[in-house]
């Protein structure tokens, strides 16, 4: 299935995630719930090497980075979750020699077929976003499945048919939906918050979008309040600060 499905049709379903960098606190809940679901779900198992030893590691389909941007006291910490963006033009799919890597025509989810993948790793080289992790114990490539086995799973209540990471995220920084449908909540959110693509220059056309951190409000003029209070209780009177203040209080109480 190496050839990409034609997704150019208007209204073509493009399922994906929208991640709000303004409220992500970097708690790793999405990363762990992703590991938890996928190690028993579609991607089972996600095998960890040396789990209790000196060099524990294994595949995770979602990882949360932290960056600092800006200088000195104005520098900001931005937590940055990163998983597959389910690109519309993903070279990870076209480079795959076996067809194990494919993009679903129906909803655009990019998947690896664990029964046909030969573990050549080429797709991971082709992905600019680091979204593919090789499970060398299993011999196949693993990646975010957009929880394809949750979002359509009839054993769940309708409201639970969302990816594990979205379901878990405590801050509500992760949104899931159809980005191909302009009228969907998620598409509107992207529009309203000026959601952006990662590395648009590479032309992979990610479906997932990131919402930028809102501007900080730590300067005068960023809050409706004035920059400092007029000492109206204590000015224009005589006596010590406390005396002036008590006279103001008296006036208030009798007024």
């Amino acid at each position: 299935m190496t050839a990409l499905p034609d997704t150019s049709a208007v209204g073509q379903k493009k399922l994906g995630l929208v991640i709000d960098l303004d409220i992500c606190v970097g708690c790793q809940a999405c990363a762990v719930s992703c590991k938890e679901w996928n190690t028993q779900g579609y991607s089972a198992p996600l095998i960890d090497d040396d789990p209790y030893g000196a060099n524990p590691m294994g595949p995770w389909l979602n990882r949360v980075h932290a960056y600092e941007a800006g200088e000195g006291v104005d520098a900001q910490v931005v937590h940055f979750p990163r998983s597959c963006l389910h690109c519309e033009q993903p070279a990870c799919v076209t480079v795959c020699p076996t067809g194990a890597s494919y993009k679903r025509a129906e909803d655009g989810i990019v998947l690896v077929n664990p029964d046909t993948c030969i573990g050549c790793k080429l797709c991971s080289w082709a992905c600019p976003y680091g979204a593919r992790e090789y499970d060398h114990n299993h011999g196949v490539m693993k990646k975010c499945t957009l929880c394809v086995d949750r979002i359509y799973n009839e054993h769940f209540e309708a409201e639970d048919r969302v990816p594990a990471c979205v379901r878990a995220c405590p801050t509500g920084a992760r949104h899931f939906g159809d980005l191909g449908d302009e009228t969907s909540d998620i598409a509107k959110l992207v529009k309203q918050r000026e959601g952006y693509d990662l590395l648009p220059e590479m032309n992979y056309k990610p479906v997932n979008k990131y919402l930028p951190p809102r501007a900080r409000r730590d300067k005068a003029g960023t809050h409706p309040a004035v920059a400092s209070l007029t000492p109206r209780a204590t000015s224009g009177r005589t006596g010590s600060l406390a005396e002036r203040f008590f006279r103001w209080v008296d006036d208030k109480l009798s007024g």
Partner: peptide, 12 residues
Amino acid sequence: PPLLKFTGDRKP
């Protein structure tokens, strides 16, 4: 265990 193979019912 040298390897953690926690999984559902699908065996590698």
